[in-house]
Amino acid sequence: MELLRIHHAAIICADYARSRRFYTEVLGLRVVAEHHRAARQSTKLDLALPDGSQIELFSFPAPPPRPSRPEAQGLRHLSFAVADVARCKAELEAQGVAVEDIRTDEYTGRRFTFFADPDGLPLELYEDAA
């Protein structure tokens, strides 16, 4: 498998307004998109770094602290950009790694899937646009 680069890091915050201000005003990240997801009572803010990598900032009502799951404040998952999600999924499964079904991102149309490291840290394979 050839991992190309880190595509994005996703963070669930405890206070959306405070975190939005920190990432945009203190760190100076550029807002790419912001989507309120009423069904989840959640907002998703896509932020860009100069090299094109991104941070996804999520809000959820009263997220509990946690090391991995259920989703809560802190690091949500680490995502790797890959050329072919299906091929990488098959490679992981051939090595005995459980991988979720491939899904399509409703905002970008790109395919992705999740799996976990040995400690349960959520990891994502995200199909690169190139």
Rank of each mutant, 00 (worst) to 15 (best):
M1T: 00
R5G: 05
I6A: 05
H7V: 01
H7N: 15
H8Y: 10
I11G: 03
C13L: 00
D15E: 09
S19N: 01
S19A: 15
R20T: 11
T24W: 07
T24K: 07
E25Y: 03
E25V: 10
L27H: 12
R30Y: 00
V31E: 15
A33P: 02
A33E: 14
E34N: 05
E34W: 12
R37Q: 10
A38D: 13
A39S: 13
A39R: 13
Q41S: 15
L45E: 09
L45W: 08
L47W: 11
L49F: 11
P50H: 09
P50L: 10
P50A: 15
P50I: 01
D51C: 12
D51P: 10
S53V: 10
I55R: 11
I55L: 15
I55K: 11
I55Q: 09
P63Y: 06
P64M: 01
P67C: 07
P67N: 11
S68D: 01
R69W: 12
R69T: 12
P70H: 01
R76Y: 13
H77G: 05
L78I: 15
S79E: 12
V82L: 03
A83P: 04
D84P: 11
D84G: 09
V85D: 05
R87A: 15
A90R: 10
A90P: 04
A90W: 03
L92N: 07
G96T: 06
A98K: 12
A98T: 14
V99Y: 05
V99C: 10
E100D: 14
D101G: 09
I102G: 11
T104F: 00
E106Y: 10
Y107W: 13
Y107T: 13
T108G: 02
T108A: 13
R110Y: 08
R111Y: 05
F114P: 01
F114Y: 15
F115G: 06
A116W: 04
P118G: 12
D119I: 04
D119E: 15
G120S: 10
G120D: 08
L123N: 04
L123R: 05
E124K: 03
L125A: 12
E127M: 08
A129K: 14
